[in-house]
Nucleic acid binder design. Sequence first.
DNA 1: AAATGACTAAATCATCTTAATTGGTCATTT
DNA 2: AAATGACCAATTAAGATGATTTAGTCATTT
Lengths: 247, 247
Amino acid sequence: MSSLTEDVRRQERAQRILDAAARLILRWGYHKTTLDDISKEAGVAKGTMYLHWKTREELFAALIRREKVEMAEDIRQRIAADPEGATLRGMLKHSALALVKRPLMKAVLLRDMDMLGKLAQSEHSETIYTERLAGFKAYLELLREQNLVRTDLSLKAEMYILSAIFGGFFLVAPLVPEEFILTDEELADMLAETVHCTLEPARSVPSAELQSISHTFMQYLNREMTIEQEQVRQAGLPNLVREEHSR
Amino acid sequence: MSSLTEDVRRQERAQRILDAAARLILRWGYHKTTLDDISKEAGVAKGTMYLHWKTREELFAALIRREKVEMAEDIRQRIAADPEGATLRGMLKHSALALVKRPLMKAVLLRDMDMLGKLAQSEHSETIYTERLAGFKAYLELLREQNLVRTDLSLKAEMYILSAIFGGFFLVAPLVPEEFILTDEELADMLAETVHCTLEPARSVPSAELQSISHTFMQYLNREMTIEQEQVRQAGLPNLVREEHSR
DNA sequence: AAATGACTAAATCATCTTAATTGGTCATTT
DNA sequence: AAATGACCAATTAAGATGATTTAGTCATTT
């Protein structure tokens, strides 16, 4: 039986290891980052890491999951703090702001082969994308029902437009000459402006409606997160407990 | 002294060789396409190709130049045939339409490493991009002066937005799930719609003004083309003549 | 004079061999 | 029971060698 403080220390150690992994993957990339490197950086023995994750891949998957959860929480707070946060433009603006300061997430979302190597094109990364977009599609449908986005375009087209705008603002950054590069804040603002102009109808939204959709959005975000969060939490527990659970 | 019909035959042969090169680079990529392959495909001896271009790189550069010129001409015609062609949205729509059916140009613009290899990141490709954007910037400035695009955003921001939208619509295609993929026409229309909503002011433009700006745009396009076209033409001439010229 | 394709030097690729690294385990220590 | 790090098998990197390919040339043919 593991005591409560034991569990906490485990969790902390798991976080330390993931911190180390994050630092190293950003410096050296996925391929060049070895488990020996990580254990050294985290100040634990290599075997200790195997008390948390069964394989190297699982460790990195956990790292990405944690990043996802942190980012979602970040977005949640930014949106909650912004009166216009729940609008489509607000959502995308805050997602962009949360993304620009997370190189790892950026690498995952944009499939950065240099940093992630084959991890970037693993089926794991593929499904994450598909799932996220599927969840987002559901949210967009809701917005359409409430006339908070244009309905004269097909849902499919709107999904593509959104992907293109969001992806575009990040993907072209390394392609355009330096003189045109925007700051993070400018980029997020212009992205939001583009989404606003293109997809939001020209009418002022009653704050009651805004409140309601804000609630819906938080639910969507929470649903996305709980699954991941559960897995993140379990990484701190000993293997035995995990295996019992999974049966 | 070379006769007139001689020159024509030379030009035709140059075109045949470039045709062959285009076919092969699309099938095998830049790296796997050898000069032997091309000469075989074009039905000429390898030495003959050296009567047109001094190196392999020059041949491929000529191919890309030709593609650029053809595409510019294509855009010109599409815009001329469209009453709204000269608007910003029209310009981008027709550029998109011209681009979607030119895999080679797409590869150059989007820096497709798989197809072009190191050619994609050569300084040649870099300068093409920079020059094109510089020319486009001048055109955008004109549009701003005539209030044909929003002036409440900085020129820099507008350049980035345009790059992001245009690039985004093409770059995300391989990233989004199949169910969201648009047809070429849909893509071009949605791209134009996005540009229209985001950057064009909400006022109807007098057709006189439209005529004027259309003229300006054609000039811009022509200026872009004449330099390239001159080089394309010269590729048909014997080396000796070329060298005399360049001194 | 124009076109060719056999030829060459240089680069690339393929194969083998050896050395080093690394993910994962487990007997030992704490 | 928890944590460690020496250890191992397996993969990967590095080197070395030889074979093949290929960009570019040029003597010969048309």
